[in-house]
Design a protein around this nucleic acid. Structure first.
Lengths: 139, 139
DNA sequence: CCTAGTAGTTAAGTTGGTGAAAGAAAATCA
DNA sequence: TGATTTTCTTTCACCAACTTAACTACTAGG
């Protein structure tokens, strides 16, 4: 039961990402990158690890997002090998506009919890992340 | 905070699926299909909706899983347009072997909850699914 | 300081996706 | 009932986006 709900959540989030990607005119990987970049800038290598694709593929992701004006490449201040990929102002506005309704709903769900229940939910979510990570740990 | 944990869970599940797919020698879509078929049989059209790809693509998914011996096509008993795709015995054994450790961890997480806390977690998960679905509802 | 490792890109080749078209069966409806 | 529309599956031609390998540039750790 609980496991099924976790599965449902994962499926729902995938459908949601796909729909958002469609609205923004990007593909699923590009959308996932945009979601991450809305929280913090990252280089192609870091995006590659996040998306679980090669760095060659993530270079392509950044190329396409950049061509569409959603992101821009900047030099890394301290490491001259690196490139910092950041949302442009337009890109940030687009992403936050589309992400907002979902974040709002999650926030109101969170606001309905009292302190005890919030702790229970957090503990569960952290445990579930650990369950996936441990079970998926390369043997 | 809570929203970030939900995001973390979604990311962890994607990493997990990718790792399992690697172990079974299939790609992510094929793995997702196998996970679904472990719960219930489905036709190519249903799998296409689940994976959010065209039915042409899901025909390919079934072709490849079938060629590897993980699934088999059967005629639908009541609808002669349809094909029922089912795990083979070997396929089921493979999938359950690999899925087991994660399900076990989730089950023990669930077992640690008392009735009140379990209800809280279930309500939260259902709410989160609804948040994604509502926010992603085609306008 | 030199070796090993990391970041990013390009190139060539492969995988797996799409859209369109088609055939067959089921569902809807006048 | 018969006509029309919808659904299910598959095939085909095409192409988007991935992979691996190679290479440059730079950093970090004995």
């Amino acid at each position: 039961m609980t496991a099924q709900l976790v599965r449902d959540l994962v499926d729902a989030s995938a459908r949601y990402r796909h729909e958002l990607a469609r609205r923004l005119g990007v593909n699923d990987h590009e959308m996932q990158a945009l979601e991450h970049l809305a929280r913090e800038a990252a280089g192609p290598a870091e995006l590659a690890r996040l998306l679980e694709v090669s760095t060659a593929a993530s270079t392509g992701v950044v190329d396409r997002l950049s061509a569409k004006g959603h992101v821009a490449r900047h030099p890394h201040p301290a490491d001259r090998r690196r490139t910092v990929v950041e949302l442009t102002d337009d890109g940030r506005a687009d992403v936050l506009t589309h992400l907002g309704p979902m974040l709002g709903r999650l926030a109101s769900l969170d606001a309905d919890l009292d302190d005890h229940d919030r702790a229970v939910v957090h503990r569960f979510l952290r445990g579930a992340v650990e369950a996936f990570d441990e079970a998926g740990r390369p043997t």
